[in-house]
Design a protein around this nucleic acid. Structure first.
Lengths: 197, 197
DNA sequence: AATTTTGTTAAATTATTTTTTAACGTATTG
DNA sequence: CAATACGTTAAAAAATAATTTAACAAAATT
């Protein structure tokens, strides 16, 4: 009788591991699109299912990698704000816990990237537009060269409007405004009125 | 007298080159955030300022790289839809032209990436949720294990809602709906009513 | 049909990135 | 205060990725 119960426990454990492993794999696989290496992605994915904070040694054991690797990996994850260092009375090892809110990850990652892209390009675009206008305002310049300048100018003005758009997108994500346009669905909608007839 | 005019032309040419170079550099620098290498980014940036189609040999000369490199680079750029092959009577070389609309680039790039991310993760999340529910619906399982399953389940439901949000974002970008929420500003607004008082 | 041109694939090389081992500095414990 | 534990940096090794040269196949020209 006890045997049968133990067997069930074991099976349940396997189901759980199976479930976690599947998601860990897909997170690790998709995270490489977010500027982290596969290993770092896998570290995050592993931490995602830990409900208690981890030490560097825990990580090292879980992933079978060296401690310095874990040290740099976890710093990278802190940089992109999806892992936090936590403090706990007792342990003198550093403890880390994964931020599990993907919206935060998303906002931070794209906020940074797009802002950098917009800033860098806007700066060069504005510089270029100024130079081009110098060419265009000079009467004596060849028609051919002016035409090229005019073409460049028009292109760059479109490009600039793209960069401005990117900036606005960034702001609307950082401010949360975008969630008014695209609301987040309730993960577990409570079924209050028991409507099953 | 002719001297002075020539000098002006030359200076204008330099201004133009200066302008283009600045933007080429910033495009190349930011494009590495879009899944292309710096070289490929530079190739695109260079093509961005060409108003006539380019051959592989043109590219090779412009960037000082080998032809096979140009061949693979241009294919990559075609893959992400920012370079198109064009046909022109006469030349039997392949001709390529850069897509200059960055919104198209943006939509295509993130549409693909996010769709893939959402699909892959949703599939594993759904698989995992099913397994977890098997654990939760079994009366005989340990409370401890059930608690872990419950925790995982709740996390995954949140994650799922993130993936669904990503899907909706993707669709709103692909359909252009997002531009109702975040309109594109007019690159060169025509000043019809000369209002300067 | 033979030759040349063009683009691509394959193999080799070079450069870059990731990972590890070793060494170090700081803090904590006994 | 000596010894240990911990995290990080530095140097070395291993693994990947980018680039080139060489070889090839298909098409066009003579």
């Amino acid at each position: 009788m006890e045997d049968k119960k133990d067997e069930k426990q074991q099976k349940a454990g396997e189901l759980l591991e199976d479930a976690e492993r599947a998601v860990i794999n897909s997170i690790a696989e998709t995270m490489d699109l977010y500027g982290v290496t596969a290993s770092i992605g896998r570290l995050y994915a592993t931490m995602y299912f830990k409900h208690d904070p981890l030490t560097l040694d825990d990580m090292k054991d879980d992933l079978g990698m060296s401690k310095p690797s874990m040290s740099t990996a976890v710093r990278k994850l802190q940089d992109i704000n999806i892992v936090k260092k936590v403090w706990k009375k007792g342990s003198r090892k550093d403890l880390f816990i994964a931020e599990k809110n993907f919206f935060q990850y998303f906002s931070h990652f794209f906020g940074d990237k797009w802002e950098r892209e917009a800033k860098l390009n806007l700066s060069s675009i504005n510089y270029a537009i100024e130079k081009l206008q110098q060419v265009l305002h000079d009467e004596e310049i060849d028609e051919e060269m002016k035409q090229r300048a005019e073409q460049d100018l028009q292109q760059l003005e479109e490009y600039r409007s793209y960069c401005h758009w990117l900036e606005r997108l960034t702001h609307s994500i950082e401010s949360g405004e975008i969630f008014e346009f695209l609301p987040i669905e309730d993960p577990n909608p409570k079924d209050h009125n028991h409507n099953e007839d």
